[in-house]
Nucleic acid binder design. Structure first.
Lengths: 207, 207, 207, 207
DNA sequence: ACAGCCGGGACGACCCGTTCGT
DNA sequence: ACGAACGGGTCGTCCCGGCTGT
């Protein structure tokens, strides 16, 4: 029992170090040696817990998914209005990004992997789906404009969130992420146009 | 003379191949061999033109910057209103992403951090600066709300553009990028709230 | 006491698994993990009984030697003529090879050189010595030709036996080994030449 | 051209070193580092010529096959009687074993099973086939007994040759191989029994 | 006494970015 | 401009100890 506790601790240490390393340098840019030095463990210890680099990356992603799942359920349980729920979720996710190395690592792994691999990462799809549902409910409840396309808007929200997170990371290492989410929602909700004005754009994408 | 022409052609071939490869697999994920096979040249030829991997990456980024510079000047020369100019620019950039491998490669190289030690990539700063200026002009001209913070909004626009581009790439390999830009501007300008409604959020980022 | 019985069982299981593994893949080609998985024991259990790979290999060889010793004494006790004894021995050895994994493993470990620096394995020397003695007795008893060189012939017999075993293993996994021993003795005793003919070769090896 | 000569030389050096190393310690017992140190080349050079350990081993085997093929054709061209041809061949092969490291390495690689999945190495089959044909012709020509089974005898000859080679290697490092071939043929042709005597054994392998 | 879990490093094959002689 | 060579780095495996529990 006492022995197993050490194993659990080692595993956690490695996982955290891996998250940090993957977040900082990406999957191919991170060597096992990087991780093992950062975690302060030996190769033997590392490979006892994770038998390959790929498996370690998968574990980091899993950890992230679990963490995201946790706060998502927590927020949904609060039974707020759809739009408020969505906004609240985004802030909680942002906080997790700031606090949890595994989440940061998982995000980079998920994005980067999705960049050169076929399907859309599981997590991203779930995320978009949830956002889309909340936006649909918000529209039906009159919280957002009836003209809005929930799916398209959901994908934009997720994309903008991702982009903001990247920019924030590069600028301040995620320190100003919350302020950027403030801006995001302010613009997304009210729009940039002066009060009372709207534009009907001719879409270029309709070809 | 004839010799030089071949050299120029070889250089271009390599540059394009490198852009494609970097876009697909990132800097550390791409090997010189990958590029040299994709370009169909020998090691000697490659290293004659670019004496290191880093230099090759820099050349790709330079190529992208030149391309972006070109269309930016072109659009600015049209002398439209600030907001229209900004919107137009975003579409032209999107088209370049779709068409030019070097641009795609340059973007990934610029975004992916940890490989080089850039505090903030040159191009991104210029991009944000330009957007910020146009938004400031747009506000002064009454094209957008007087309440808007041009700098914050500029960073959001750039972030959202980047995020949309990533999502588009993963979903359709950039095929639906233009449509996503449609959505972006539609939401950014009009907002999601029902007509006539606005919210004054209490910013969390103000701590 | 009850405890010790389990220990004996474990030891035997490991020994058998090791014999099988060494026979199949040789000493350097076999990993401790291979053996321990094949035996269904843990690392701790294995290393309690055999504190190193080398010691385990030695135990396998010892097991083989004991087995060979057993049948050898049994056959010698039958008090047959020297030649008949030798032939009988070869068949009994062949049967052991077919039946006992430790014997197979021991043979491969003994033959395969380079792993340890044995000038000539103990067992082989004993084997040749015994064969040589029996052939000498057979010659003195008129069972074989007076011209025969017992030592040279003994080494040939051992070599041919070894070679036949290898060929049999590769062809049928030892299934047809007995038939090959039939052939061996048929040719060794009668020779290939037509009845009544002999040749006197000029030896090339006499230099 | 001149450049290629160096490459050819390097390749040959590596091949010879690999043959020696494989012959001495077997495939799994030989590390690439062993070979590269023995050959006096760098890792880069080695992997330029042979892109994997397995490929290197295959090249050694190929080299051996070519060498054997060469002397085989040479001897066959001499148009001697079948039995004389076979005997001559065995001596020539023995000489090659003594002289050519690649041949020694190839033999060990071919014999040692478990490393690759070859059920029966090509070369061995050809060897047995050729021996069988020559023995058949010898029987038809009355050179050997009409009772002999050419195929069984051929497999025995090949097995005995292999076994003798192993014994010779372990005892003297192949130095006395020729003398052992003398013994082999003396016994194989005349048999061990006293002149004029034959035995009809009851085969055990007939089940 | 006997076995299991966890960890320690040295070493394995192989690849990488790069240079050199021609 | 090219084929050949260089050597450090990559991920992963190996054999093996030290604890801990029964």
């Amino acid at each position: 029992m006492a022995m197993q506790e050490r194993a659990v601790r080692t595993r956690g240490t490695v996982l955290r170090a891996a998250g940090e390393a993957f977040a900082a340098k990406g999957y191919p840019g991170t060597s096992m040696t990087d991780i093992l030095v950062l975690a302060g463990v030996t190769k033997g210890a590392l490979y006892f817990h994770f038998s390959s680099k790929e498996e370690l990356a998968a574990a980091v992603v899993g950890e992230q998914q679990a963490a995201v799942q946790r706060v998502t359920e927590e927020v949904l349980a609060q039974q707020r209005t759809p739009l408020t729920t969505l906004v609240e979720l985004s802030y909680r996710w942002a906080e997790q990004i700031q606090q949890d190395a595994a989440v940061r690592g998982g995000i980079r792994l998920t994005i980067e992997q999705g960049t050169f691999e076929q399907p859309m990462p599981e997590l991203y799809l779930q995320w978009i789906e949830l956002t889309s549902q909340l936006l649909t409910q918000a529209r039906d409840a009159g919280e957002i404009s009836a003209d809005a396309d929930p799916t398209a808007a959901a994908e934009l929200v997720v994309g903008a969130f991702t982009g903001s997170q990247i920019v924030s990371q590069v600028f301040t290492g995620h320190a100003d992420l919350i302020r950027r989410i403030d801006t995001l929602w302010s613009v997304f909700l009210n729009g940039l146009l002066p009060e009372g004005r709207t534009v009907m754009m001719l879409p270029r994408g309709a070809r």
